[in-house]
Design a protein around this nucleic acid. Structure first.
Lengths: 200, 200
DNA sequence: TAAGTAAGCGGACAATTGTCCATTTATAAA
DNA sequence: TTTATAAATGGACAATTGTCCGCTTACTTA
């Protein structure tokens, strides 16, 4: 008695939905496409769409999975290959890469934040894979910094958590659209800010 | 030729809407009341309601105005009366009070965040009065800290901005509901975190 | 291969938010 | 007091999101 695998028609539809959504998003932007339109274009019912993705946010998360995977690979590789460098340098490197990633995915990120944050949602931004990953890496760097005397944080878990919260898609949006900063400027600000958190 | 004041009927309706909304929110919670219900209960049309408050978020902001006013008065008074104390102490006092305020208003705050954040909204959380106020106070404290050698932040404006972003209603929600921390514990975490940002 | 069953399907429905605009009404000016 | 007009009104409408549930289909097992 083997566990039931995903049915073929379901698999077909999943890819169909993903492809359709991806194309529509690229054509009209994430905000410009409704779940209904996605379902219609993909030729499936609303229920079929929602069965898989409980919200547009989840759908976006799925579409970001690949690029996020590349991002974490890059980060993991970077942190491993620079293991000997000072913590400050690696923290700055991490922050710079994270901002670059956010800049490249801002369109999707901005769609995720509002929906997922909302009250009693099923996922919760703070339990999402990306957020947890960032917190984990930041905590690791902070722990190292504390050990090497570059920081005197007590609760590294919380500090990492608070630090991760500053990488907010809405804030990024505000800084670019309202304040007119370039990605490079924002990156410099973040790097400077985080560098300043360490001692010396 | 005097400038047109608010019409009497408009004023009457504004108070009516505010009172009704306040009562309904207390009865069923912010999430449990729709704008339609508010309009209906107040005996006005949808259009009338939306003419004044473009979203539930704005309505909540208006309802919070009083308590926020008390909050800022308290803060301003505290900072003025403790002008001689070390920056660290005042920063901690500020953070503690802010967390207490958030705890007392969390119900409203959680309603504001999602809506206001969304893409091209008219207000934008980061331009809202509360956020701007917090950034301003934090920047002031940071500037002082830099001057007195307790911090070596370069871009105090940005650092204050990033710091303010950590006071996120969703995060507060997560820490209490999901992680089970008490308000006191959270306050201690925040205070510790911010204290750690200063040198010495 | 046959058949039972759990997974999948899809579109109608309900609930909200937010917009529009013809009509009404308060107020300033004549 | 009358009148002109800008503000205010309210409810119908449109657009979305998300749920429900009877029907269909693929897959397992005998």
């Amino acid at each position: 008695m083997q566990q039931r695998n995903e049915r073929k028609d379901a698999a077909r539809h999943r890819e169909l939905i993903l492809d359709t959504a991806s194309q529509l998003f690229h054509e009209r932007g994430v905000e410009g496409v409704s779940m209904h339109q996605i379902a219609k274009s993909a030729g499936v019912g609303q229920g079929t769409l929602y069965r898989r993705y409980a919200s547009k946010a989840e759908l976006c998360m799925e579409l970001m999975a690949d690029s996020f995977q590349r991002f974490t690979s890059g980060i993991d590789h970077y942190l491993a290959s620079s293991a000997g460098s000072p913590v400050r340098e690696r923290l700055e490197g991490f922050v710079a890469r994270l901002i670059e990633y956010m800049a490249s995915e801002i369109e999707w990120l901005s769609a995720i934040k509002p929906t997922v944050t909302c009250a009693e949602e099923r996922i919760g931004l703070y339990q999402s894979e990306p957020f947890v990953y960032v917190v984990g890496k930041l905590k690791g760097l902070l722990d190292e910094a504390v050990q090497s005397g570059d920081a005197r944080t007590e609760d590294t878990e919380f500090s990492a958590f608070a630090a991760a919260a500053t990488f907010d898609a809405g804030m990024f949006f505000y800084l670019t659209k309202e304040r007119g900063f370039t990605v490079e400027q924002i990156k410099a600000k973040y790097v400077g800010h985080f560098s300043g958190l360490l001692l010396n």
